[in-house]
Amino acid sequence: MRKALLQLHTAVFLWGFTGVLGRVITLDQTWLVWYRLLITTVSLWVLYFFMNKIKKLPSRSIFLISCIGFIQALHWVCFYGSIKYANITIALTTLSTSALLASVIEPLLLRKRFDTIEIFLGLFAIAGIVIIYNTHVQFSVGIIIGLLSALLTVLVSVLNKKIVDQYAPDQITLYQLTGGFAGLSLLLPAYQYFFPEQHHIPVAMDWLWLVLLSWVCTIMTFFLYIRSLKKISAFTMNLTLTLEPVYGILLAFVIYHENEKLSKWFYVGFGLIALAVAFHMIHLLRYTRLKSSSN
């Protein structure tokens, strides 16, 4: 159990570190994600080939998984775009609303009943975002893109829940990342025509950070995450995942001193979001206990 928790916390910390890498890499957001997916996809195909883990799936299944991967790629583009237009702290703060957004989106897509308490907590989070937005207008574009990033990651999560029991996690990861790379590659020419980006060729140090981002923060974290799930509960996993923005924001404060660029109102808004997330986890814990006791 202790080893599984260490593996999960290591994975979450490394996910939080992706924000720092997103800022240090000089590439614009679309190219950053494209190179990340290029390195990750090629590495995974080679790794899975030697591990004999490549399984052929029906064409329809590959297409479906690939589409989810494309949405994941768009999430990354928006996440790094939020960092480029604002900063790491803003990007991770908006991303932290994803659990509360899920409480609204999941019932719509999975045809479940709405939870009044979760809707109320969602309003708390919205209030926090409004305060941050109105008091940090210079980051307004980054905040909007960050919220779109949170919306897309929720969509990926919900769609993955529909297929997670049908396919092995290794195959989902392989074909999602491949689909994300293929979809972004097809979109890239049109996107660059209408929204040309200047920084599209990595400088020497970018390659080091891109490999670190792909191998350590993507592939290694996936293996740590999957292994930890065999020993810990779903609630512990969800609770630990809420620490990703916390780790990332603390790293941004220590490395880039981003706290010096934020007003006191940011902490008020962030406090409302953190409070909503905390109460949401408590609510989930009570629901899980009631459900287990009734069974």
Rank of each mutant, 00 (worst) to 15 (best):
A252E: 00
H75N: 11
L109R: 01
V216T: 01
L101Q: 08
F114E: 02
N259T: 02
M205T: 12
L121A: 13
L108S: 05
Y85H: 04
I25C: 04
D206G: 03
W207N: 04
P245A: 00
V77N: 04
L251W: 13
L290P: 00
G269T: 05
G180M: 10
L155A: 04
F223S: 02
I62W: 09
A73L: 10
T135G: 09
L57A: 08
I71A: 07
L229C: 09
V254G: 00
I145G: 01
G180D: 11
D115G: 03
G146M: 05
S233R: 08
R227Q: 13
A150C: 03
T218R: 01
E118K: 12
W207F: 13
D165F: 15
A4Q: 04
T153S: 11
F114Y: 15
K53T: 11
E106N: 07
G22L: 01
L27T: 08
T40A: 14
T178V: 09
S214M: 13
R2P: 09
W265P: 02
L213E: 06
K56Q: 10
Y80Q: 05
W45V: 14
I71G: 07
W207T: 08
N160V: 09
N295F: 15
L21M: 10
L14A: 01
K84P: 09
G69D: 06
K291V: 06
I226G: 05
R36H: 11
A252D: 04
I163Q: 06
M1F: 14
A182R: 01
G271S: 09
C67Q: 12
W31Y: 15
V24W: 06
Y247D: 01
Y85C: 00
M205S: 09
P189S: 04
A182W: 12
F120S: 12
T30D: 06
L177Y: 15
L92C: 05
I126W: 12
P196C: 08
I282P: 04
I65K: 00
I219Q: 02
R227C: 02
L229T: 10
I119L: 10
F270P: 07
S233K: 08
P189Y: 12
L27E: 03
H9W: 07
F124H: 03
Y193S: 00
K291F: 13
I201R: 03
H75A: 03
E197M: 10
W31R: 00
N87K: 07
R36T: 12
M237E: 11
G128P: 12
L285M: 13
L92F: 14
L64W: 15
F266V: 00
A150N: 05
F223M: 08
S294P: 00
F223W: 12
E258S: 07
Y175H: 04
F63V: 12
K161L: 14
I219W: 12
F17G: 01
I131D: 10
I232K: 06
S292D: 13
L213Y: 14
V203H: 07
F194N: 03
P245R: 08
A4M: 08
W31N: 12
A274S: 13
Q72A: 14
S214I: 08
S82N: 02
P169R: 01
V104I: 15
F181T: 05
F181Q: 06
V12E: 02
K55F: 15
T135H: 15
F79V: 11
